[in-house]
Amino acid sequence: MTMNIVIADDSSLSRRMVMNALPPQLSDVEITFARNGKEAMDAYYAGKADVMFLDLTMPEMDGYTVLKKLKEAEANTIVCVISADIQPEAQQRVLALGAACFIGKPVTTELLRKRIHDIGLL
């Protein structure tokens, strides 16, 4: 079954880095890019968000708001937050809002694949 993945980040460099770091075992995937939280939520409403790689600091709608909206909607989306904001409290806040994991930027292929394995996507 196709896995719908959203990569939400305002940086095109980061979006590409995350896409390239996805493990080759995840072959049957459909990737949607979102440049802000609003586009990420649009992807969710369109049924395209089984998994979401989510940045926190984005224009228009930030990652915290996306997490709150997904929580309110009781969404089944598995969210992996990838953020430059590495304050321990930021990590606690996103986990409390339902994120499955947190990865501090700059993201490495090795770490991303480990987290994907840890949260059971493989």
């Binding site: 940086s11 095109s12 460099l13 980061s14 600091t57 953020s83 430059a84 904001d85 590495i86 501090g104 930027k105 700059p106």
Partner: peptide
């Protein structure tokens, strides 16, 4: 765009 992301990461630290 790349520099903005680099500064984003640096400023996160």
């Amino acid at each position: 765009d790349a520099l903005q992301e680099i500064f984003n990461i640096a400023m996160g630290q």
